[in-house]
Design a protein around this nucleic acid. Structure first.
Lengths: 244, 244
DNA sequence: TGACGTGGTATTGAAGTGGTATTAATTTTC
DNA sequence: GAAAATTAATACCACTTCAATACCACGTCA
């Protein structure tokens, strides 16, 4: 490790500020893979000692890397390399958050928002009475302007009295009405694109798509959300971290 | 027993925490078969005395082994080695266990088991030197006699010196050679069946299949396994539980 | 039933980490 | 040339982690 410091030596004679020099060299080192994801960087103080600079200088350099998202800091604990795009998502997240994390600009377009009667499958899965009503929300999911998925959500009308007032974030809306989805079971299957899906997603009929069916539960363990998501396989992949 | 303690001696001078050092050494010892299944480990207090550490330190080490499923504790009674058969299966799992749990009768058929040179992708993902060798294992997965998936695994030859001796359970074999897969990252995508896959799986060309690519890591976080699984979508679906 | 040995937990303190306020020197700007 | 901004140093604060001690709760067995 110590031998590496030499590659970080700064040059006082040139008139670019020290903290900028350091930030650049560190960014290079990180991209070159000096440290692994989630590994701790040398502490600010040891950096200072090794390079004969003050802590403020070292911190300013690190501030830049922080802004670039290369590192993250934990008070009292250390500075760590942020893992690259591969960050596993075993958490329950909306599409938007996932895409943002990957550096895309997410958008949604509503295809329809209606209040209607449920199918028998929905009655069973959501545990409804046969004459209850549900809201069915259908939307396109875009990333950087390209269609990535078609999503159809069904919820009991009681959770979402007025479907027309739901804006882009369904989960945020549910939170605000006190019906937060806390846990979900998700099935993943592969299907061939039907003519309707192919049209909506802008891909050839028969192309393989990922279909994810999710049942969302609230804190009381009632099923309150049924969502089918049809993803273009060439733009999205589903990453999971598994443990023994 | 006492002579064994020497192999567990910790090193105060190095700056990895004592409890981590101990956890690693104990894990090694367990995998090396120092104790039998269901046998009691030395008590926490005797560990402390032998290694001149505090009980908190010993406990923290044991906490890690507990998390890894290597041991189990019984209040007032002792700490015990968990039998091997149960360890491998909490979530990271072979096909066989999943299918059995669903009530199918799982089988495997070997298509090929060879020792060969790695592709560039494999070199990168497994962190190999270019002239290293790998074992490539290809097999059919059956449930109740029907082909459900084609699986291609690639491992460094150093982890699996003789591919011909691997029987049905790859993970069990890895455990016995001390290269257990502890964690994995898995991508799920949809693809259209190529002619070769269609032939092997007995489905039409172009049919949608689930493709799962998994990178398996050992306890030291080295990538030691690359597995691509191509599943028939009509027989298998991948279920995940998500949490907020 | 009690004594003893087991794992479980709360509290503590030292050492190491990032966070921030203050100040001085330098460069930039008008 | 003077005011303002930038750069860098120092000193002190707050949080985490590691490890130690002391005490609690459960099982076992004479």
């Amino acid at each position: 490790m110590d031998s590496r410091w030499t590659a970080l030596q700064l040059d006082e004679s040139v008139n670019t500020p020290l903290y900028l020099q350091l930030a650049r060299k560190l960014a290079e080192a990180i991209n070159a893979g000096w440290w692994q994801a989630d590994e701790a960087l040398p502490s600010e103080r040891s950096l200072c000692d090794a390079l004969a600079i003050s802590r403020v200088t070292a911190r300013k350099a690190l501030d830049i890397l922080l802004e670039q998202g290369l590192i993250s800091r934990r008070h009292g604990s250390g500075t760590f390399i942020t893992p690259k795009l591969e960050q596993p998502l075993s958490r329950l997240n909306g599409f938007s958050e996932v895409l943002k994390a990957k550096g895309f600009k997410p958008e949604s377009q509503w295809l329809s928002r209606v209040r209607t009667t449920p199918t028998t499958e929905e009655i069973i899965k959501l545990g409804l009475s046969p004459n209850a009503e549900v809201c069915r929300l259908k939307r396109k999911r875009l990333a950087d302007g390209v269609v990535m998925a078609i999503e159809i959500s069904t919820l009991p009308a009681s959770c979402l009295p007025d479907p027309l007032r739901v804006d882009s974030s369904l989960y945020a809306h549910l939170d605000s009405t006190g019906h937060s989805v806390v846990r979900a079971l998700q099935h993943v299957r592969a299907i061939n694109a039907t003519p309707e899906l192919a049209e909506l997603a802008g891909i050839p009929v028969g192309e393989a798509m990922l279909m994810m069916s999710r049942i969302g539960f609230d804190a009381a363990n009632n099923a309150i959300e049924l969502t089918d998501t049809y993803c273009r396989n060439d733009y999205y992949d589903f990453v999971a971290e598994l443990k023994r």
